[in-house]
Design a protein around this nucleic acid. Structure first.
Lengths: 158, 158
DNA sequence: CTATTCAGGACATTTAGTATCCAGGATATG
DNA sequence: CATATCCTGGATACTAAATGTCCTGAATAG
C-alpha cells in the first residue's frame, strides 16, 4: 500500500483541527518532515476525490471539503491508492480445461469470490471509521493535541 | 498482492483432487499455462511453509502436506506474500511535535490502529476459509471438475 | 549410471512507488 | 499593474519490488 495513505490520514486529522483556514502543502509537509512536492501530489489526489478543497495564490492552501465525520478511511485509501483490490484475479481459469472464453471469471471463479469476500470485510471496516473518529480518539488520549497542532502550524515560518 | 497467490490457491485446489500422488511443477504449470520456473518458486515457498511436501527425483513432485480442510487461504497468502500487512506504519508521528523517540507508534498511533483493525478483519475472513471449502464449492458448481482435472493431469505428456 | 525432479542462487526484465523539477495559471497584496 | 505566493499537472529520474529465466547441485527411481 502507498505510503501516501498514511500521510493523507494524518494530514486530514490535522486539517480537522484547523477548520476554515487553508493550510499550504509546505506547512503540512513540515509538520511531519515529509517531502513537500510529493505530499502535494497526494493532496491533489484528495482534492480530485472531493475530500479536500484547494485554493490557489497567497493565503491559499488545502482544507477539508466536508465534515470529517463524513470522510471515511476508505475514502482516503481509494483516493490515494486507487479503487483496485489487492488481489487481482488474472482469470487463469481461462487457460484451463473446458474454459468459457467469454465468461468473466472474476465473477465466476470461486477463488476470486473468496478473496473478494475478504476484501469486502476489509473495506467495510475502513468505511465504518471516519477522520472524526480518529481525531476524537486522539483527543481522548492526549487532549492537548489539537491545540499543539494549531500553535505549531501558526509558528511555522511562511 | 503477488500474483503467485492466485496460482498457489488454484494449484492447491487441484492437488486436493489428486491425493497421494505427487504432481510435478511442470504439470501444475501446464494446467493453467503458467511459467514453470516461476511457479516452481511459489511451490517452494508453500513447501517451506509446510503447506506442501515435495519429493525429488523421477516420480517426484508436490502434494498437500495436510488435510485441505486444514489449509486456510490466509496460510497461502502469508506463505507467498509474506507476513507483512498492506499498510505499513512508518511512524511519521516521530517527526511531529512532542514525539517520544522511544515510543512504538505502530502500537500507539490511532491511524495505525484503525488500519490494523481493518487488516485483522481481512485476515479473519481469509483464515475462516479453507482450500477444502473452495474445492467443495467448485464441486457443487461443476461436479465434473475433479474428474476433469484428474484426467487432464493424467494425459499431460511427461 | 542416467534421466528426472526439486532446491535455490544469480541474474535480467518489467512495473510500481518514490521523489524532484519546472512551466503555467490563479489570486492576494501593494 | 506588478509581484510574490501557491496550486496544477506534466516530464523526468531514481529506487524497490514483482516477474521471469537460467544454471548448478542434490535427491532418487529405474
Amino acid at each position: 500500500m502507498n505510503e501516501g495513505v498514511e500521510w493523507a490520514m494524518h494530514s486530514c486529522v490535522n486539517l480537522s483541527w484547523l477548520p476554515g483556514r487553508p493550510v499550504t502543502a509546505k506547512h503540512l509537509a513540515a509538520f511531519y518532515d515529509l517531502p513537500t512536492a510529493y505530499l502535494n501530489k497526494q493532496l491533489q489526489a484528495l482534492t480530485r476525490a472531493g475530500i479536500l478543497t484547494s485554493i490557489s495564490g497567497p493565503k491559499g492552501g488545502f482544507q477539508l471539503a466536508r465534515d470529517p465525520r463524513n470522510i471515511s478511511l476508505l475514502d482516503i485509501v481509494v483516493a490515494i491508492d486507487g479503487p483496485d483490490e489487492a488481489f487481482r484475479c488474472m482469470q487463469i481459469l481461462k487457460a484451463g480445461p473446458g474454459a468459457d472464453p467469454k465468461a468473466d471469471y472474476t465473477k465466476v471463479c470461486l477463488v476470486s469470490q473468496a478473496m473478494r469476500s475478504a476484501e469486502l470485510a476489509y473495506r467495510r471496516e475502513l468505511a465504518g471509521q471516519s477522520i472524526a473518529d480518529i481525531a476524537d480518539r486522539v483527543v481522548s488520549q492526549s487532549p492537548e493535541a489539537p491545540g499543539n497542532a494549531r500553535s505549531r502550524f501558526a509558528n511555522l515560518k511562511s
